[in-house]
Design a protein around this nucleic acid. Structure first.
Lengths: 149, 149
DNA sequence: ACGTTATAGTTTCACCTGAAACCATTTGCA
DNA sequence: TGCAAATGGTTTCAGGTGAAACTATAACGT
């Protein structure tokens, strides 16, 4: 005999559902950091990500930025245009392949980078402060595994 | 004497930067799941999230959905409207407070829920399969800490 | 050498998103 | 009781986003 008046629909429990928890955490963290530099420097998150790539790998093409950020190529194209317009990035053309752009931070771009980078790092430290040293190591290893293709 | 020709700009290493890694992981995972049901059921991720809440907590108001999902109230309002239009959610008015809506899944809504929920769970299992039982426990505890306000 | 195919990057389009303004209703308090 | 403030929800507006189409250039195979 079935005493359940309503069939068991087995609803998802979002608060224990890993993809959902990751989404909440990621949004909270990223928006927390972005909120600081967006207003202060009129800098969007995609623009900032492009800048971090150009800081580490000067003279790359837009395509390499796409590869290194996992961002959409349209998003990168637009972010780069805005950065060039704002005088934060210099865009040249590759010798020998006129399709390719050659991107690097301008002086102004470096100046902003050098202000925002410590700010981002401080946020990360604050987040990691909630964990023990052991947990930080675990998280690092776990993310490595989950992010492996 | 300073032998560094260029000042040390200390660029961020995105691939080791926690907020960035979380963002990549979260997007990959969520989009992987959403890709399956979006086309098959014309169901957006926000709509699906609203449905999971209504599955677990029948007869809630839109405001409660907002509270439980950490989604924007505009996004919830629109998702609910689409779900009502599609006949997947029934929207009534609260007795004694005509501002409040009373939302619940319709028969059609439940039918879709019962197809998508196992699919979502399967994706989560697949993701967690990359980890050992111990790592899964660690991740759970770590997320608890990081998500605590 | 030359036409097909591939690649770098931009534009278009259709949609999603959040902040702010807005409307209706309810609550709180003088 | 009556009026200001708060609340639930929707609409508006000003972006941001990705898929697909497009342009320009380069690479490849015959």
């Amino acid at each position: 005999m079935n005493f359940d008046a309503v069939p068991a629909h087995a609803p998802l429990e979002l608060e224990h559902f890993l993809p959902y928890r990751l989404s909440i955490l990621s949004n909270t963290v990223s928006q927390g950091i972005a909120a600081e530099y967006e207003e202060r420097f009129q800098l969007s998150m995609t623009e900032w990500r492009v800048m971090t790539i150009l800081a580490r790998f000067p003279e790359v093409s837009a395509r390499e930025v796409v590869e290194r950020t996992a961002m959409d190529k349209v998003a990168v194209s637009r972010a780069v245009s805005r950065l060039v317009d704002a005088g934060r990035v210099d865009r040249g053309t590759h010798d020998g392949d006129k399709r390719r752009s050659v991107l690097k931070l301008s002086e102004a771009g470096w100046a902003i980078h050098d202000e925002v980078a410590p700010l981002a790092r401080a946020h990360e430290r604050e987040l990691l402060a909630k964990l023990s040293a052991e947990e930080r190591e675990h998280l690092d290893r776990i993310l490595d595994k989950l992010l492996a293709i």
